[in-house]
Each structure stands twice: as C-alpha cells, then as structure tokens.
Simulated assay, not measured.
Amino acid sequence: MFANLQTEIADRYGIHFNDVALLEEALTQANYINEHPNYTGHDYQRLEFLGDAVMQQSTAVYLFKRYPDWDEGRLTELRIMMVQTRSFAALSRELHLDKYVQLGRGEELSGARMRDSLLEDLWEAFIGALYLDQGQQAVMDFLEQTLFAKVDSGFFQQFVDYKSKLQEFLQKNGAVKIVYETLDEVAEENNTQIFTASVSLNGDELARGTGHSIKEAEKAAARIAFEALQK
C-alpha cells in the first residue's frame, strides 16, 4: 500500500522517502495498532506534534522572505490564515492521505477516513515524517508546490471566519447591532441557487455578498465589509 503512495508522491512532487517506516507511521492511527497486537510500529501522534512546529516555522520563514516590506502584524495575520488546520484537510485530500491511512475497524465504519479533524492531523504528521527523513529544505520544496503555491489563489479565504472577524472589529469600542439579511434567491440554469445577503451596522448597510447558500452569502458580505473597513 505504501509503495503506491511512494510512487504517487515521487511522480507528483519528486519526493522519495529514504525511511518508508516514517511514512507508514505518519499514516497509522492508534486504533489500528490496538486492533493489531503484532503491529510493531507507532501511531502518527508524535509526528503530528513535530509537523505542527515545522509548519509554523516553515510558513514564517517563507512569509518573512517573500514580503520584506510587511510589518509583524501583516505577516502574523497571513501566517495564521495559512496554518489554520482546516486548510490541512484539503491538502491531505490532494495528497491522497485519506486513501492510505491505516484505521481501526470502528473508525473505518464511522467514516473517519473522510473526517477533517483526522486529515488535518495526517498532514502535520506527514510534514513531520518528511522533515525527519530529508530535512528542512525538502519540506520547503514540498510546501512551495502545495501550500505556498496557493497564497495568490484565494484558497485560504474559504477558511477564514469573516463574520467573527467583522463582529470583533465592529464591537471593539462597545456593543453594536449587526444584522444579516437574505435579499434575493435566484435559480441558475444548472438548478443551483444563488443567494444574496447583506450585513448592516445599526441599521446602515455595510456590504452585500453572494453564495450558493445563505451561509456563504453572509460570509461573503462579511468579508467585503471587513476588507472595506480595513482600508
């Protein structure tokens, strides 16, 4: 099984693990080991711990070099956006870690293979394994092809809670009334729905946004309002 993953990541990213046992450890859940008494390997949790630290450092170095004119606040904000774990689940799926993880029978039946929280952990464990196997530069080269390549694409915006950010910004000087309202619902040719929502502050409209659900439309309105207020 792991030979197939080795071939995949070699073909896509030019990565060849020297110690395949590290790769297997990064993709083995504790419940799998509990159900296989003769299994001699370890689960991914220690590698996850290491990978978390490596991700933080690698992203900080990348941003520091890429944006030499940015102050600490802007660098920190983008770093937090990039290393929030919700994005790691999407990256795990791109790497097909969901396909190769070794799960216990109960976890398999409960749908853990599709669970974002597990996939987030697997991404960090994979990074930890790669760091131990090949060092920091190999991690940076891999992240250049995956995580860092998405900086300019808007990929990370989907994981930002703009409604909370807007609320925090508007209420920094005291309580205010923030209201979201659904204004329109239109059916497209493919039968999908497009919703339009607005966000208002004390009765004054701040922005409007659209999305394929009311939640998406409200989030879009919050993002537009927040970015406009920041300017």
Rank of each mutant, 00 (worst) to 15 (best):
R208Y: 01
G203Y: 03
A175Y: 03
A187G: 03
I194A: 13
H212M: 11
S198F: 05
N190W: 04
I194Y: 01
G203Q: 04
K177N: 15
Q193Y: 03
E185T: 05
K177Q: 14
E216D: 15
E185V: 07
L183Y: 08
A187Q: 11
E205K: 15
T196F: 03
L183E: 15
L201Q: 13
A197M: 08
R208T: 14
E188V: 08
G209R: 04
E181V: 14
D204L: 10
G211Q: 01
L201M: 10
R208I: 08
E188T: 14
I178K: 09
H212R: 10
A175M: 07
G211K: 01
K215F: 02
E181Q: 15
T196D: 02
I194C: 10
T196M: 01
Q193G: 00
S198V: 07
T210K: 11
Q193S: 10
K177W: 05
E188P: 00
L206E: 06
V199M: 08
A187L: 14
S213Q: 07
N190V: 07
N191L: 14
T182Q: 14
S213T: 15
E189R: 13
E181C: 08
A175L: 06
T182D: 13
A187K: 11
E216A: 15
G209P: 05
T182I: 14
A217T: 04
A197G: 09
E185M: 09
T192R: 13
L183K: 15
I214P: 00
T192V: 12
R208E: 07
A207D: 06
G203D: 06
E185Y: 00
V199K: 02
V186C: 04
L183F: 07
E188W: 02
H212E: 06
D204G: 00
V186K: 12
E185Q: 12
D204I: 13
E181H: 13
T192K: 12
V176K: 14
E181F: 04
G211I: 00
I178N: 02
H212C: 04
I214V: 14
A217W: 00
I178R: 03
K215G: 01
G203C: 06
H212A: 06
